[in-house]
Nucleic acid binder design. Sequence first.
DNA 1: AGCTTTTAGTAGTCGTGACTACCAAATGTA
DNA 2: TACATTTGGTAGTCACGACTACTAAAAGCT
Lengths: 148, 148
Amino acid sequence: MSEKPIFSYVQPEEKTGYLLWQVTMRWQLQMNQQLRSVGITLTQFSLMAGLYWLGQQGEVVTQQRLADYANTDKMMTSKVLQTLERKGMVERFSHRQDGRAKQLQLTLSGKTLLRQANAVVEQVDAAFFGPVQSNAVLLNQLLCRLMQ
Amino acid sequence: MSEKPIFSYVQPEEKTGYLLWQVTMRWQLQMNQQLRSVGITLTQFSLMAGLYWLGQQGEVVTQQRLADYANTDKMMTSKVLQTLERKGMVERFSHRQDGRAKQLQLTLSGKTLLRQANAVVEQVDAAFFGPVQSNAVLLNQLLCRLMQ
DNA sequence: AGCTTTTAGTAGTCGTGACTACCAAATGTA
DNA sequence: TACATTTGGTAGTCACGACTACTAAAAGCT
């Protein structure tokens, strides 16, 4: 006498959410493994990239602004930026108008590192998405719709 | 006199890899937030689900076997299973044939929790992938191709 | 049997990622 | 001006997820 099965007959790995998760973990792993050669993590890269980008737009970038832009929470952002400051990639000054805020700035070594890291990221991305290159635009659209 | 820009004119958030990452983080967050009501994490759920599934196939499941199946590393798997054992969701016996291995078994409470958690997962998945429901099969195929 | 190599599992570290809780500065309002 | 509320940032906790390094048992080899 067997119990009622918990799952339907679909195997877990056939579920879209699970697949999405697995694929992303693999992408993230490859990124971090390759980025290791330049001494940076994916998260650190994405924050530095965000900082650079906002800076290019002429913005005065605070930690909260960067966190909003990168969709990271401010606590994590604070910690990673402390790490990046310790590594000499980022400087944090106190904000002129707002006494609470920290104004962020990439250092010269930071920009150099960012440039090196970006080359790695581009290369891993190309290799990873090679198998679906013809459908890249489509995949992009679907993902965009999931972000609203 | 301005330096050569580090990135092309594409904004970072337009990159497929970055999008994939963002979407998955959001999916994972929603999963974990909802699963909290039943007192389990997504990772714990996926290991329990894998254990259940392999058990249904009549296999004697060891930690390494489960790790292989779930694409998790054995160190992490070991720790999460210790947590699950402490919570009384899983039992770990020593393997009859292999003195190194641990044989895994879901407890009754484990199965109950798994059933509750699965209902939550199904519901979050449905809500999350609603916006692309008509293209679900296509998205699935693309993701599958990225897993080889 | 004696030896090397592989394999199953654990301990402990680092870096997220989400959380609670907190401080202090800025803002809104009476 | 006085007070309550919001906002920018930090400290510390928990749970991955990847890593190094380790023990001990199994398997392979001579």
